[in-house]
């Protein structure tokens, strides 16, 4: 192949790859399906964090861990619930998703944040956790998992 033709091919290739790259740089507008998939993933992550916090609280009560370990676990779980909530909150609600549906998801994620925060506070304060808190963690985790199952 002559050098000029080779250069031409190269220019075309470079232009093509630039177009492909730029095409990837558009703003994502989620469809209803995308939104639900993200919401389901966030709910699952949140459920995982709530279950972890519950396990940490239970093991600490049974004196099978020491408090710094349990506190670290709960603090990480708290951060995870926050990240999960952000994942949905920062996503624009598309046409196909009802206001009530979105609000229900946000409400559940908010409840998870709240209950994990209480678990962490209890672990920092020390002393046996009230049974109600363990039960509450359990309930919220189940609610989250069920909601995720409905969406996913």
């Amino acid at each position: 192949m002559p050098a000029a033709a080779l250069r031409g091919v190269r220019v075309v290739l470079a232009a093509l790859s630039l177009v492909v790259l730029l095409a990837g740089c558009t703003v994502a507008t989620p469809s209803a399906g995308d939104w639900r998939a993200t919401a389901a993933r966030s709910l699952e992550d949140s459920a995982s964090a709530v279950s972890t916090a519950r396990l940490a609280l239970r093991e600490q009560e049974a004196e099978r861990t020491w408090s710094t370990y349990a506190v670290t676990l709960a603090a990480d779980a708290e951060k995870q619930t926050g990240t999960a909530t952000d994942g949905v909150a920062t996503l624009q609600r598309p046409e196909g998703v009802g206001v009530a549906e979105a609000a229900a998801v946000m409400d559940l994620l908010g409840r998870a944040e709240d209950v994990v925060r209480r678990a962490r506070q209890r672990l920092v304060a020390g002393g046996p956790p009230p049974d109600a808190l363990l039960e509450r963690l359990d309930t919220v985790a189940q609610q989250l998992t069920r909601a995720a199952g409905r969406l996913g």
């Binding site: 992550d45 995982s48 279950s51 676990l73 990480d76 985790a141």
Partner: peptide, 8 residues
């Protein structure tokens, strides 16, 4: 249903 995200 816990997913592992931390060393703890």
């Amino acid at each position: 249903g816990i997913s592992v995200e931390t060393l703890g």
